[in-house]
Amino acid sequence: MAAPIAIQLEFGGGAELLFDGLKKHHVTLPTQTEPWDVKQLLVWIQRNLLKERPELFVQGDSVRPGILVLINDADWELMGELDYQLQDHDNVVFISTLHGG
């Protein structure tokens, strides 16, 4: 069993508006049999944090195009994207690069 892990989530560039306007969330992901990865994290975020308009944050199994994801200040593309296994005290940042007119 993987122990629960504590991570920090940050939302910016307007994405925070989907999360009650809060930019930072300190969360503890519950114990589960396999290690937590970003794909599972996105499902958890939708169920537990996302307050409105999920189509502005997720598309299919991933974040929608136009949302930049950083894991510990590195582009998630360098970290394995959805397959990256989260570690205790990771910092995951979601920044929307899309701005309405």
Rank of each mutant, 00 (worst) to 15 (best):
L82F: 03
Y84L: 01
D75V: 06
F19K: 00
G14Q: 01
N91F: 04
M1W: 05
E77P: 00
I95V: 11
R64D: 02
V38K: 03
D61F: 15
D88W: 01
L42S: 12
V63C: 14
H26K: 15
Y84E: 04
L9T: 09
G21P: 05
V92Y: 02
M1A: 06
N91V: 10
V58H: 15
H89N: 13
Y84K: 08
D75N: 15
G66M: 00
V63K: 13
G100F: 11
F94R: 07
L70M: 13
E10Y: 05
L18P: 01
M1S: 09
Q32R: 15
G101W: 09
R53G: 10
P35I: 12
V92S: 02
S62Q: 14
L82G: 02
G101Q: 12
I71M: 01
E10K: 15
Q46D: 13
P4L: 13
R53L: 12
K51H: 12
Q59P: 00
A6Y: 03
T28V: 11
H89L: 13
T33V: 12
P54M: 13
E10G: 11
Q8V: 06
Q8L: 06
V43N: 14
F57L: 00
V58G: 13
L29T: 11
A15Q: 12
Q85V: 00
V63H: 11
V63W: 10
R47I: 08
V38I: 10
G100N: 09
I5H: 05
D61P: 11
L56D: 09
V43K: 14
L18A: 08
G66C: 03
T97I: 05
A3F: 03
E16W: 09
Q87S: 13
D73I: 00
E34Y: 11
F11R: 06
A3Q: 14
R53S: 13
R64S: 00
K24T: 05
V27I: 10
R64M: 00
F94K: 07
P4W: 14
L9D: 08
